[in-house]
Computed example of a mutant assay.
Amino acid sequence: MDVVGVVALFGLVLVYFAIESSEKKVRSEVSRRIDRLESKVDLLLKQAGLEEPALPREEEILALARSGKKIQAIKVYREVTGAGLAEAKNEVERLT
């Protein structure tokens, strides 16, 4: 491999790591902002004397999770909420 190829490869590696680092910062900032918004919504609900609506099919999800069928519980949770896989897994584990 000639010098130009090595320099080009090195440049591509640097660009890749710069983009990856930037994406992590953006994801972190978005996550932080979502957490703040959720806290504010919770406070508003509390001050208004309202409760968050119950999760549709929550009893079914709980029954599946408690009987060791967490994958099925996650599938139902995703179907009901439209959540992603990681979020659904975390919520099902939190419910049990």
Results as ranks from 00 to 15, higher is better:
3 V>P: 10
4 V>N: 14
4 V>C: 11
5 G>C: 06
5 G>H: 11
5 G>E: 13
5 G>T: 09
6 V>I: 12
7 V>C: 08
7 V>F: 01
7 V>K: 12
8 A>M: 10
8 A>R: 00
9 L>A: 11
9 L>T: 03
9 L>M: 14
10 F>H: 10
12 L>T: 04
12 L>V: 12
12 L>G: 15
13 V>M: 06
13 V>K: 08
14 L>F: 15
15 V>L: 07
15 V>W: 02
16 Y>M: 03
18 A>T: 08
18 A>I: 07
19 I>E: 02
19 I>H: 03
19 I>G: 00
19 I>F: 12
20 E>L: 14
20 E>P: 11
20 E>M: 12
21 S>E: 01
23 E>T: 12
24 K>W: 15
24 K>Q: 13
24 K>R: 13
26 V>N: 08
27 R>T: 00
28 S>T: 12
29 E>H: 14
29 E>T: 08
30 V>P: 11
31 S>V: 15
33 R>N: 03
34 I>Q: 11
34 I>T: 14
35 D>T: 13
35 D>A: 14
35 D>C: 12
37 L>C: 01
38 E>Q: 05
38 E>F: 03
38 E>D: 12
38 E>T: 08
39 S>F: 12
39 S>H: 08
39 S>A: 15
40 K>N: 10
40 K>Q: 13
40 K>L: 08
40 K>G: 06
41 V>M: 09
42 D>I: 14
43 L>M: 13
43 L>P: 01
43 L>Q: 14
43 L>Y: 13
44 L>Y: 14
44 L>E: 12
45 L>G: 00
46 K>Q: 12
47 Q>A: 14
49 G>R: 05
49 G>I: 10
49 G>T: 06
49 G>M: 06
50 L>F: 02
51 E>R: 00
51 E>V: 11
52 E>Y: 15
52 E>W: 15
53 P>F: 08
53 P>H: 04
53 P>L: 07
53 P>E: 00
55 L>F: 00
55 L>V: 05
56 P>M: 05
57 R>F: 02
57 R>L: 10
58 E>N: 10
58 E>G: 05
58 E>A: 04
59 E>V: 13
59 E>A: 15
60 E>P: 02
60 E>T: 12
61 I>L: 06
62 L>W: 05
63 A>G: 02
66 R>P: 08
66 R>M: 08
68 G>M: 11
69 K>C: 01
70 K>V: 02
70 K>L: 10
70 K>Y: 07
71 I>F: 09
71 I>C: 05
71 I>W: 10
72 Q>T: 09
72 Q>H: 00
72 Q>N: 07
73 A>F: 10
73 A>T: 01
73 A>I: 06
76 V>A: 00
76 V>G: 00
78 R>P: 00
80 V>P: 09
80 V>F: 09
81 T>D: 05
82 G>A: 03
82 G>P: 05
82 G>M: 05
83 A>R: 06
84 G>T: 09
84 G>A: 03
85 L>S: 10
86 A>L: 07
87 E>G: 03
87 E>K: 14
87 E>P: 14
90 N>V: 15
90 N>C: 13
90 N>W: 11
91 E>R: 12
91 E>F: 05
92 V>M: 04
93 E>P: 06
94 R>V: 07
94 R>N: 09
94 R>E: 14
95 L>T: 00
96 T>H: 03
96 T>P: 12
